[in-house]
Design a protein around this nucleic acid. Sequence first.
DNA 1: TAGGACATGTAATGCGTTACATGATTAT
DNA 2: ATAATCATGTAACGCATTACATGTCCTA
Lengths: 201, 201
Amino acid sequence: MALTPSSYVVLGMLNIGARSGYEIKRFVELSARFFWAISPVQIYPELKRLEEAGLIRGSDDQRGGRRRRLFELTPLGRETLRDWLRNEEDPTVEWRDKGLLKLFFADALGPEDSVELVRALRERAERLARSFRTEIVPAAEATSLAQGTYYTALLARFGLEFNEWIVAWCLGVERDLVEAARPAKGAGKPRVGPTHGEASR
Amino acid sequence: MALTPSSYVVLGMLNIGARSGYEIKRFVELSARFFWAISPVQIYPELKRLEEAGLIRGSDDQRGGRRRRLFELTPLGRETLRDWLRNEEDPTVEWRDKGLLKLFFADALGPEDSVELVRALRERAERLARSFRTEIVPAAEATSLAQGTYYTALLARFGLEFNEWIVAWCLGVERDLVEAARPAKGAGKPRVGPTHGEASR
DNA sequence: TAGGACATGTAATGCGTTACATGATTAT
DNA sequence: ATAATCATGTAACGCATTACATGTCCTA
């Protein structure tokens, strides 16, 4: 059987303490979703496949009328996860950002509308940063503490710092745009050139 | 007819100077690909659809035996693009990064193997930063100059600075990992805690 | 004269999301 | 009582990638 990235998400989540499909879903929502989304519709069939392959072991946990199935990694499953983590295929990235895409085409707009696109991007990053600060980082740190893990919290902080960096970048661009608009008396677009440069470093 | 993000990529690329399907493909490879990938198989049918909808106008350009079709935006097409850029739907992001995903699960590994994951992430970002510096930014600045655009070059610089930020973040983590390994005599994993904190800001 | 860039496609496959469905338990 | 959360799925759809196909022109 061929293992997909989704398989490894499931294996990895079981390894850091998730036990049921539902818990995997919640873990993902609170962390991995930002760099690897996966939905319940993928999780449950995946659990079945992994169990058939002997990588995880499931047991029924009937509490009252509510059924649920608890899983744990088998030694084979743990080794399979570790092998994947260690193997050297180039780690692919796919980034699909409608906000950046719109900004890329912003020359089609006048200055007032285009600065609005930067602002929308910044506000999104501010919202995300806020949710990292108040929800995701604390939850990840709780998990790290409970499970004795390090990278759970590290990646949550990465998400926070990344969004803060985006905010800073947007603010730099917004500053440049108003400055470029001033001397030309609000008329022209800013020209290509040095601009705000090293906003971060 | 319903317009998809791919439709707007095509419209947007025509707006900043691409003329044929092939040129759109090349433009995308040199810029938008990093925040919105799209392949030839999507571009050509899309051109057909947009022409049928009256958003672009195509003409045959037979140079010798080599056929090619040149397109330009119609006024309606340009207005459609501008409307999309101005409308306020939340700009969705999707990030799918196998490197970050692996790092997230790195607790399954020992310290030597897990630092290797950070290094792989950093090296990828370094490669990307290099390709931005030597290829993408120069190409984008040439386009900006030729077409009188601003955001083409801006977004290329964004890609460069973003990858440089990733490199800096990885270096911070790598530093923390070796420091955490030293006092414990190479035995333990680093614990949850303050760590390198504000590597950037 | 062979390889690479130019130029445009078709067909098959697969992956993932959306919408929908079901039922139990806990909190308000 | 009602809503929210727990818990697990099915079915349909659509979008995007992969592999393949074709032919031209230019350069080394």
